[in-house]
């Protein structure tokens, strides 16, 4: 007996194909075209070959931005994943507290990214902001507009405030999906709270934790709006991550060729890391 193949299904996929073509493939093709040419505007282009790629790959400015980006993502993961897990473990499993906690956790995720940047910009201002003024009154020399360390501190704090909730919600969903039988068996065996966490909860959360790490890594690696509004990449270049550097190059200096080459390299880094994480995730799932 032969299975009927309905080719009309392709028509249903067509809108998505058109959408992806216009918002991803055509812009990507244009970036590739720009990356091998030089332009001074007015749609006039000059062939540059792979010069921009060579220039970017050997540029200390790019290396510094990449290092800052990697460091930022590492710090974000080191804080947000354990913190999110701890908060999820502490959240109630039943009663009115569940709804209250879930709403509180969802709130930061609902705020537009530029508003988050603007909020923290005002909140951390040393002269009038609650955080900035408060820290200075407590005796700390805090001014994120002129001190690289405090600029990093504020940026990390802002990201932790904004995105830890996502890790919490993922972990919480993973925790409530663990059947009660496991806990009953652990209770019968007289397992300690640590043993329950180590041998029941943590293995069961492996998949959601991998997703959380993947999402937070990718998102922190591409962070742009919040940092742009909060510090603009400063003071100096202290918080100039790859995306901010790209923005400066493309829109500030209008160096479209080098900016296109840089965005392709940036894209390839993200593509490789996404593939590695995805492969790791699938492998864990298969095991």
């Amino acid at each position: 007996m032969y299975k009927q193949v309905n080719q009309k299904a392709w028509l249903l996929v067509l809108p998505v194909v058109v959408l992806v073509a216009f918002n991803a493939i055509i812009p990507l093709m244009t970036v590739v075209n720009y990356s091998v040419q030089e332009t001074f505007g007015d749609n006039v282009f000059f062939w540059a070959g792979v010069d921009w790629f060579q220039q970017i790959l050997n540029s200390p400015r790019f290396h510094d931005a990449l290092l800052r980006q990697l460091l930022f993502s590492a710090i974000i993961l080191a804080i947000e994943v354990p913190l999110g897990l701890i908060i999820a473990l502490a959240m109630p499993r039943k009663g009115i507290g569940v709804s209250i906690c879930l709403i509180l956790m969802a709130l930061p995720l609902l705020i537009p990214w530029n508003v988050v940047g603007a909020m923290w910009n005002i909140f951390a201002l040393p002269e009038i902001g609650l955080l900035g003024k408060g820290l200075n009154n407590l005796g700390f020399d805090y001014n994120y507009t002129r001190q690289p360390v405090t600029a990093w501190f504020t940026t990390v704090l802002m990201d932790v405030w904004h995105w830890t909730s996502l890790v919490v919600l993922l972990c919480y969903a993973g925790l409530v999906s663990i059947p009660d039988d496991y806990y009953r068996a652990a209770k019968i065996d007289g397992a300690s709270a640590w043993a329950v966490f180590r041998y029941i909860q943590l293995p069961k959360l492996k998949r959601v934790l991998t997703i959380a790490v993947l999402l937070r890594f990718m998102d922190s690696f591409m962070i742009y709006t919040e940092v742009k509004v909060l510090t603009g990449g400063g003071p100096g270049n202290a918080t100039t991550f790859l995306s901010i550097d790209l923005d400066k190059m493309a829109l500030g200096q209008f160096d479209l060729g080098p900016a296109a080459a840089m965005s392709l390299i940036y894209f390839l880094i993200i593509l490789l890391l996404s593939w590695l994480f995805y492969t790791l995730m699938m492998r864990n799932e298969a095991q």
């Binding site: 093709m29 244009t30 075209n33 091998v36 040419q37 749609n43 282009f45």
Partner: peptide, 15 residues
């Protein structure tokens, strides 16, 4: 180059 609909895409034969 030119004023065609896809001129802004700056195609080259290599790309």
């Amino acid at each position: 180059q030119g004023t065609s609909l896809i001129a802004w895409m700056a195609w080259t034969w290599q790309t």
